[in-house]
């Protein structure tokens, strides 16, 4: 069983790998080059989450956040589910439809996030 600190570390590493993949993937960059937003990743079972700052399609910063109020787009769920999701082991659309993961934000932002996941892993 992983402790909170280890779960947080694993999630951060996963998000950093996700950010490298996103920033270097040509197809993704072509799609989201005009997309700027902030995405809050909030693991329900931990005390803090991560805020991804996206500017013109590039994830510039991943910073730790201690409040659920941050972010224009929010992805909320159990830490292991979110970690698997950002590793491409779980399908965001399925998780959303099954209510395992909650996503909040504008229609457009949610679709972009889904499209990025699809381009990276499908």
């Amino acid at each position: 069983m992983m402790g909170s600190r280890e779960k947080t570390r694993t999630l951060r590493e996963t998000l950093e790998a996700f950010s490298r993949d996103t920033n270097s993937n040509e197809k993704v960059q072509k799609l989201i080059r005009k997309w700027s937003t902030t995405v809050l990743i909030w693991p329900e079972d931990l005390d803090s989450g991560f805020l991804l700052k996206v500017e013109n399609g590039k994830i510039h910063q991943i910073i730790e956040s201690t409040t659920r109020e941050d972010g224009k787009v929010k992805v909320i769920g159990k830490s292991d589910v979110i970690t698997n999701m950002f590793k491409g082991k779980e399908n965001l659309a399925h998780l959303y439809m099954d209510g395992v993961v909650q996503t909040y934000g504008s229609e457009k932002d949610q679709i972009v996030l889904d499209a990025v996941a699809r381009l990276l892993w499908n």
Partner: peptide, 13 residues
Amino acid sequence: IYPSAAGNRIFLK
């Protein structure tokens, strides 16, 4: 109970 935007589908599942 289901604070998610999936609506009827998730309610009935």
